[in-house]
Design a protein around this nucleic acid. Structure first.
Lengths: 213, 213
DNA sequence: TTCCTAAACCTACGGCGTAGGTTTCGCTGG
DNA sequence: CCAGCGAAACCTACGCCGTAGGTTTAGGAA
């Protein structure tokens, strides 16, 4: 890397740092991510980054914020059907996870209270209440949904673009049930599997609504 | 720490290392965990650990294995009702997560193919098939269940014994639905909330079973 | 023109994981 | 009884890491 004279501007700004950070995590993973690596990527002294971002933790926050923003407008112009909104949100969230499998563990681990996350929740929650779902269900449902989404996508993206580890074989003597079902798991991580599971979760919300009515 | 002469035995063994590692992560968290720290805790040279465990990654594997073993015999002597098995497994899993909130992110992030995990799954899956659930549902259901468990417990333990961050307040103008439901979220992370959500998931599995019949 | 500030760079520190080498204890075969 | 050998410990050293604190300079404000 060509060195820069001391007072010379490197033209750094937050936006540039943000996209470089996302690209770096996408390419090399969280393990390798660091201030020095990112600085090298940008052709800049590591310490220069501290003028724009507080430190490594703040950099990771920025990365989260960036990928979460991609999922923001999933329900733009959708009907007011809460189930349709839930489906679109879930799909949009999954698409993001597939685009950034190495960033996703960061999202699932941290509590999401950023405006974009809250806005998406608000859209879903208000549609549910509008449809007459009891508050109890409308409050629990999004938690179940995002619990499932985070857990499943964490497993099915496997923290990398190689996708999840293939389901192993099971000894049919000690694990007869597992061995019998193994063929059903060959599509682990696929869109079809995701849709089936999402159906189960939404079925649950609907059933719970019916019960409490 | 008192130094030991070079050939003197420190009486290290895998079991001792394992429990010390779990205790260290429980106390100080994953961030601070490291070979040197653990060695200091054991009153031992860092390099001595390498005689028993391959390295840091293997240490974390050992920690996972240890806490997962705690959840092994949750369904000992349970009836063959798949729903009861699912409930017991879920509760036992949650108890473990609450006991080791700082270890849990490790579990949720890695694919679980260890014998104890497979055994627990086998118990659930075979009960489902015995009860006449279609293979399609019996295959999907555990994935939904553990997806939900991992995602929700990750969020509700918040990676530390302080529990999750309290749900923030919402501006009732921009987020009317969220603001209205906020009182319902004050028990976030509680056992009651967990049971309600588990009910929703099990409702979903039951509903899906009914539909495919 | 002069000065100030923002943004860059440089140096240095303590901590990390771990590769490779050295020392000593305790067992075991002769 | 003792030679030798392997296991288990220790020590040194290397190259990373995050970042605190200091220095330099370009460019705008007075």
């Amino acid at each position: 890397m060509a060195r820069r004279a001391r007072g010379t501007s490197a033209g750094l700004d937050r936006e540039q740092i943000k996209s470089a950070a996302v690209a770096l995590v996408d390419r090399d993973g969280l393990e390798c991510f660091g201030v020095r690596r990112l600085a090298e990527e940008l052709g800049v002294d590591p310490m220069s980054l501290y003028h724009h971002v507080k430190g490594k933790a703040a950099l990771l926050d920025v990365v989260c914020e960036a990928v979460l923003a991609e999922v923001a407008d999933a329900t733009e112009g959708a009907p007011d059907d809460w189930e349709e909104i839930a489906r679109r949100t879930a799909h949009s969230y999954r698409d993001m996870a597939c685009r950034h499998p190495r960033v996703f563990p960061l999202l699932a681990t941290r509590a999401q209270t950023s405006p974009v996350a809250v806005t998406a929740l608000e859209r879903l929650v208000s549609a549910m209440r509008m449809a007459g779902l009891p508050d109890r269900v409308a409050a629990d449902a999004p938690m179940v949904l995002f619990g499932f989404l985070n857990g499943h996508l964490l497993a099915s993206t496997g923290g990398g673009p190689e996708g999840p580890a293939p389901v192993p074989e099971f000894d049919s003597d000690t694990y007869p049930g597992m061995a019998a079902l193994a063929p059903r798991w060959t599509d682990f991580g696929s869109a079809e599997e995701f849709d089936r599971m999402l159906d189960i979760v939404l079925d649950g919300i609907r059933a719970r609504t019916a019960r409490s009515a």
